[in-house]
Design a protein around this nucleic acid. Structure first.
Lengths: 127, 127
DNA sequence: GGTTGACCTGGAGCGCGCTCCAGCTTCTAC
DNA sequence: GTAGAAGCTGGAGCGCGCTCCAGGTCAACC
């Protein structure tokens, strides 16, 4: 099964421009082309895009994604390096979550304060 | 107690340039000036900067921080609006944490896979 | 065979959040 | 009185991650 770029964009949640951009910067391999020269994305291509968007969602910079993509292209020999990148990134994500949770506590505190100042139902009162 | 810009930068964890930038874009009020025209940050200024950096850490865009800062300048009348901004933001942060946690699961899965492919101690083997 | 619409390429532009710079003033220490 | 450090202003520049555009090709449909 292959997909035209519009369909691949729809399925990956990325824009058409972003798909072409990712190709230009060598984050993804150039997909196959159909008889008239148009991109034809495979299921594998989409799976890889799906993984990339996870990395992006977790804040991995494109440079590092490119590095990971490059290693992936080298096959099994680079498994160790790829694993280390992911482990490091996992640590980063965990730290980020902790950071966000700490800030959540501060937001809670601030919001409670606003409650105390104006009464619990300020929200309705000023709506 | 007041602080010169270098000291304020050190204490807030922001750069000197960023402090001046925040002032320019009206995210913070212009701090007091000493007798020779240099900025003299107060403890209150630093507390506000501290809160702003929490908002920044949690990904609030500067535009919204500015809006919040503007409302803060209006005093008690804007408490309801400010509270709603923080509540909305808190929801966003919670959603972001959930998203990150979901991605963590995928990272775990990928890393485990690498373990399975190459043996648990790839890390040592390829170090 | 003309029009429409999806896709192509190379390259420019953009919004964000800073960061850096030139050229100047002011204070402190020697 | 001079050197050096710290700060000032207005404005330019930058890295990131897209996003948009002009001008062209190609296949499909009326």
């Amino acid at each position: 099964m292959t997909y035209a770029i519009a369909e691949a964009a729809h399925r990956s949640g990325l824009s058409i421009d972003t798909l072409r951009y990712y190709e230009r910067i060598e984050l993804i391999d150039p997909p196959a082309r159909d008889s008239s020269g148009r991109r034809a994305y495979s299921d594998d291509d989409l799976a890889w895009l799906g993984f990339l968007t996870r990395l992006r969602t977790t804040g991995m910079p494109i440079k590092l994604m490119r590095e990971y993509a490059r290693l992936r292209g080298q096959g099994i020999a680079s498994v160790g390096q790829r694993k280390r990148i992911l482990q490091q990134h996992r640590d980063d994500v965990r730290a980020r979550i902790d950071e966000l949770r700490a800030c959540l506590g501060i937001l809670d505190y601030k919001i409670e304060n606003y409650d105390r100042i104006t009464g619990i139902d300020v929200q309705e009162a000023t709506a």
